[in-house]
Structure formats: structure tokens, C-alpha cells
């Protein structure tokens, strides 16, 4: 019997091996055409010369990276120093994305916990409700948010009507509005992976911890959080990375002085005074930054595993 079993197993494996190429081909094509090719194109563009009305001239140039990192004064005649303009945009974007991630975590973790501890029959309904906003386009949702919090919008009207405030709150065009937009856009990306992790959590572990004299707080810190950590990390990455490159929320809710990387890149490609090589260079720098962050995380995760 065992012989028959292993025989059929081996033959099944051979079948899979010979079918591997045709089975993987669609995936390879998708990744190749829609991921590798555009990224390669951007990498090449970032080393080309800009065409005045958008587009590129096929001449190798480091001008885009020079513009990003090196300051030569308004007329280009000062001694070169480090250019802070774009680095500070990056810095502000990282801070905004980090705040949005923390907000999403603070709200998303209890939400995910709540859903995962409902009876199995009702979990589906809660998960469905979490994903409902995604039925509406992100642009429309962000515009609605703008409408909601503007100076004479429904939120201020309601608060003034209730007598909570006497002057309308200046919410629109603030960092707060941007964070609200990012938080609102990406919250489900935090909830879903944490939910998946908490759902697999065995609550007998919490009982065992309490049985061994751990308080609720210590149980959360020493048992729950380490075990559901992969879900938390996945959620944080899924919120942080798109937040870092977001342009809808900063453009529509933040106004001119709350500029973020996404808006900077978008501007280079959208307007007639855009600069494609510069936009491509900023994209490459952003992507490198994200990859470096991911690599640092993967390293620390691997070290944790080995411990």
C-alpha cells in the first residue's frame, strides 16, 4: 500500500514539474509587463535629460539626482551644498505616514480583536462592513472627506449648532486633515491582517498565562502581542508604504504647505512644467528607501527567528 502511495505521489510531482512553466507563465507575464517593465522604465528615465514640455530626451544625465540632493543657489552659481528641500519633503512624508500608521494600529488592533472574538457566524458581517468603503472610489471618498470637514461643512455646522464651538474649526489644509485622510483610506489594510492573526490565536494561551500568575497587561505584552506580531507587522507595512507615497489625501486635504512625496512625484508628470526624469528619480529614491526599510525588518525578523 505504501509503495502505491509513494508511486502516485512521485508521478503527481513529475506532472507538476513538467507543468510548472505553463502554470507560472501568466504570473511571470503579469509581473514582467506590469511590474518589472514600468520600474525599469522609471529607472532608465531617471538618468535621462528632461524635455521642456514633459517627456524625455534620450541623453544620459545625472541632473535629476543632482537636483534632488545638491543645492547650487537660485542661479546655480553658489558652491554646492546639500539640498534640503526634497529631503524635508521626505522627512515630513515619513512622519505623516508614521502617524497615520500608529493611528491605524491604535484603532485597527481593537477592531480586529473585536471581530476575531465574535461568534464565527457574525464575523463575516463585520468583515464585510470593514470593506464596504472600498466599494467607493478612493478619490470620491477623499473629496467627500474634504467636503465634510471644510470650514462651512457639515461637521463644523453640527458642532456649532450643538454649541460645542463658536468659531468653525480650521481642519481643512492641515497636517491633521492629511492624517485623517490617510487613516481613513488605509484602516482596513491594518484591520484585515491583524484579524487573520488574532483569529488563529488560541485563547487558551491567555488562560495559561493567567494561570501562571500573569496579569492581563503582562499577558498582552508577553503572549498576545508576540504571537500576533506577524499580523501587526503586515498591517503596518500595508498602511505605511502606501501612505508614504499617497498623493490624493495630501493634495485634496492638505493644501500647498502639507506637501508629501506622492504629490511631488505626481506634479512632475502631470503639469506641462513637469520634469519626468526628476519625477522618476524621486520615485527611485522612494522605492529604495522602502526596500531598505523592508530589508532591515527582514533582517531583524530572521534574527528573532534564529534566537
Amino acid at each position: 500500500m505504501a509503495g502505491v502511495g509513494s508511486d502516485s505521489g512521485a508521478s503527481a510531482e513529475t506532472t507538476y514539474r513538467s507543468a510548472r512553466v505553463p502554470l507560472l507563465l501568466p504570473t511571470w507575464l503579469m509581473i514582467g509587463v506590469f511590474l518589472v517593465l514600468p520600474v525599469a522604465l522609471m529607472a532608465v528615465y531617471s538618468f535621462l535629460t528632461k524635455e521642456m514640455r514633459g517627456g524625455v530626451i534620450w541623453d544620459f544625465s545625472l541632473a535629476a539626482y543632482d537636483q534632488f540632493f545638491v543645492h547650487r543657489g537660485l542661479f546655480g552659481d553658489e558652491p554646492p551644498t546639500l539640498e534640503w528641500t526634497y529631503i524635508s519633503v521626505f522627512g515630513r512624508s515619513i512622519i505623516q505616514a508614521a502617524i497615520a500608521t500608529v493611528l491605524c494600529l491604535l484603532i485597527g488592533f481593537p477592531t480586529a480583536w473585536f471581530i476575531a472574538t465574535r461568534p464565527p457566524e457574525t464575523r463575516g458581517v463585520w468583515l464585510f462592513l470593514v470593506t464596504v468603503p472600498y466599494w467607493v472610489n478612493l478619490l470620491i471618498r477623499t473629496v467627500s472627506l474634504r467636503f465634510l470637514i471644510r470650514e462651512n461643512g457639515p461637521l463644523n455646522d453640527a458642532l456649532m449648532g450643538a454649541g460645542v464651538i463658536s468659531e468653525p474649526l480650521a481642519l481643512i489644509n492641515t497636517d491633521f486633515a492629511v492624517q485623517l485622510g490617510l487613516f481613513y483610506s488605509y484602516l482596513p489594510f491594518m484591520v484585515l491582517p491583524i484579524y487573520a492573526a488574532v483569529e488563529r490565536y488560541n485563547f487558551t494561551w491567555s488562560e495559561a498565562a493567567a494561570d501562571l500568575y500573569a496579569t492581563r497587561w503582562v499577558t498582552l505584552r508577553e503572549i498576545v502581542l508576540p504571537i500576533v506580531r506577524p499580523g501587526i507587522v503586515a498591517g503596518c507595512l500595508l498602511v505605511f508604504i502606501p501612505s508614504l507615497g499617497a498623493f490624493l489625501a495630501p493634495n485634496l486635504l492638505g493644501g500647498a504647505k502639507n506637501f508629501m512625496i506622492g504629490s511631488l512625484i505626481e506634479e512632475q508628470f502631470k503639469k506641462s512644467l513637469g520634469n519626468w526624469p526628476f519625477g522618476a528619480a524621486v520615485s527611485m529614491i522612494l522605492m529604495s528607501l522602502v526596500l531598505i526599510l523592508l530589508m532591515i525588518y527582514a533582517r531583524s525578523a530572521a534574527r528573532q527567528e534564529a534566537r
Binding site: N202, T204, W205, E207, A208, A209, D211, L212, I223, P226, I227
Partner: peptide, 12 residues
């Protein structure tokens, strides 16, 4: 202290 049916050892 308790010995649980499925042991409930902390996996991490």
C-alpha cells in the same frame, strides 16, 4: 496551576 488538554504551550 493547570495542565491543559491541548497543553497550551506558548509557541513563541
Amino acid at each position: 496551576n493547570t495542565v491543559f488538554q491541548q497543553y497550551a504551550l506558548f509557541p513563541h
